[in-house]
């Protein structure tokens, strides 16, 4: 690495960092926050920013698993349904005997992981394309949810979930603490473990990875299971913040998680990217939604604005895919 001559290593590293997708996304978020905070009353207040971060935590949790799947060359379109499963499932579990509510949450998280594992099984062993497998899973879950839960909202009485949604240890909402913990774990797994290296290899070239002795099937199942788990966590957090779950509560998170991942500079084709980009990507999405709400337009214009802004941001951050 010393043949580059005059420019010291840290300068080149710094230059690389300044041009990286995650950093640019952070810059965009910061710029939007500063401009909006100066021009709109109440936008820059501590309470509002904290609220936006809480909302971003839900997207960020879903995006954590989605990032792993996308880097591994797949895509998970069932995250919305899994969020709904866990938001509707916790109140429906008849476990009143357990006063703390831990058992119900653990059971739902295990269930969500199991759904992800099923996705992974289908992709790895039945060789179904990830998009089909997860779309079919989402369709299947949607049917089951309507049969089980019906059209009405279900309220929850789970102390642990309520604590997650409302508690503020050291002034920081518990949801954000959860997000930070999951983020650190995801980044650690992705960039500092052999398993993380295998995910990148799998996304870059599955055949070469398989020929190098990596068990591609186990890796595939693991990333889909991880996606199920984080979607399940997001559903529990949503339930805590909302107080009730209903069928369809998780639907927006399919697009949101994919957009957060791609806005963060992860290639949708797999093999390159980082969760460090998805974190500001999630914040950016929530910011966009908040701005659109402030504009106070009709639902039609709101939808158009949302789609156009995502498309426009993609043009900015999609440079990596252009080179491929």
């Amino acid at each position: 690495m010393s043949d580059a001559g005059a420019t010291p290593l840290f300068v080149r590293r710094a230059a690389l960092f300044l041009r990286s997708g995650p950093f640019l996304t952070v810059l965009v978020v910061a710029a939007v926050w500063i401009v909006a905070g100066l021009t709109m009353a109440g936008f820059g207040s501590y309470g509002h920013l904290r609220y936006m971060l809480e909302l971003a935590a839900v997207i960020g949790l879903v995006a954590a698993g989605q990032t792993l799947v996308v880097i591994g060359g797949g895509i998970d379109l069932s995250v919305g349904a899994i969020v709904t499963v866990s938001a509707v499932g916790v109140p429906l579990l008849p476990w009143d005997a357990d006063a703390s509510g831990v058992a119900a949450v653990l059971a739902i998280l295990a269930g969500a992981t199991g759904i992800g594992l099923l996705n992974g099984l289908g992709v790895a062993f039945l060789r179904v394309h990830p998009m089909i497998m997860t779309l079919a899973m989402a369709t299947f879950l949607q049917g089951v949810l309507i049969i089980v839960a019906g059209g009405s909202a279900v309220s929850m009485h789970n102390p642990l979930v309520a604590w997650l949604g409302e508690a503020r240890p050291w002034g920081v909402p518990a949801g954000i603490v959860l997000w930070v913990v999951v983020s650190l774990l995801t980044l650690l797994i992705l960039h500092a473990t052999p398993f993380g290296a295998r995910i990148f290899a799998l996304g870059a070239n599955p055949l070469a990875t398989s020929l190098s002795g990596v068990d591609v099937r186990v890796t595939t199942m693991a990333i889909f299971a991880a996606s199920g788990l984080t979607a399940g966590l997001a559903g529990v957090l949503m339930l805590g913040m909302n107080g009730q779950g209903y069928v369809g509560i998780g639907d927006p998170y399919v697009l949101a998680s994919i957009a957060a991942v791609v806005l963060g500079g992860t290639s949708i084709l797999g093999g390159s990217g980082t969760y460090a980009g998805s974190i500001p990507g999630s914040a950016l999405l929530v910011t966009i939604t908040a701005l659109i709400t402030v504009v106070n337009a009709s639902p039609g214009w709101r939808s158009i604005l949302f789609g156009s802004l995502i498309l426009g941001l993609l043009l900015l951050s999609g440079r990596e895919s252009r080179r491929r």
Binding site: I75, M131, L255, I258, A259, V262, I268, L269, S298, P299, G300, W301, R302, S303, I304, L305, F306, G307, S308, I310, L311, L314, L315, G318, S321, R322
Partner: peptide, 26 residues
């Protein structure tokens, strides 16, 4: 032309087109 992935463009496009439908007939 802009070499963006089709899945994301059409996903974002579904919001724009759906919004246009709502504008035409709320």
């Amino acid at each position: 032309r802009l070499r963006l992935p089709a899945i994301i463009v059409t996903l974002a496009g579904s919001f724009i087109i759906g919004g246009m439908a709502l504008l035409v007939l709320p």
